[in-house]
């Protein structure tokens, strides 16, 4: 995939609620994070779950989120994070992310 995100890119998870088998947890939709690494291309689980081949494959990323960005009242250290594996079509660029 040529339009892959790169490690260090700021991304936002789509704030969407389509029906079906979705592997993007609800608590992270709409939240902003940073791409950590690219795992490669994998069949789309949203198709696999219904007996389809899950094609075209989707690039899978590890995205790091700061706890404080997920839960504003997070009771822990500022640097605590959650890493989540998210497929390409659930991410959009977060151009303002670098300045926050």
């Amino acid at each position: 995939m040529s339009d892959r995100y790169s490690p260090g890119d700021h991304v936002r998870v789509r704030a969407d609620s389509p029906p079906g088998h979705i592997r993007t947890p609800v608590y992270i939709r709409g939240k902003c994070g940073v791409v950590r690494r690219i795992f490669g291309d994998f069949p789309n689980p949203e198709g696999l779950a219904y007996g389809q081949p899950g094609l075209p494959e989707k690039t899978l990323y590890e995205v790091r989120f700061r706890q404080r960005d997920i839960w504003p009242d997070y009771d822990g250290e500022l640097r605590d994070t959650v890493d989540i594996d998210i497929y390409h079509h659930w991410l959009e660029p977060d151009d303002a992310g670098a300045t926050r």
Partner: peptide, 15 residues
């Protein structure tokens, strides 16, 4: 310790 960062990994996909 407070200065140890906690990194949670939510295994949502193929990893």
């Amino acid at each position: 310790a407070e200065n140890v960062e906690v990194r949670v990994h939510d295994s949502t996909a193929d990893m």
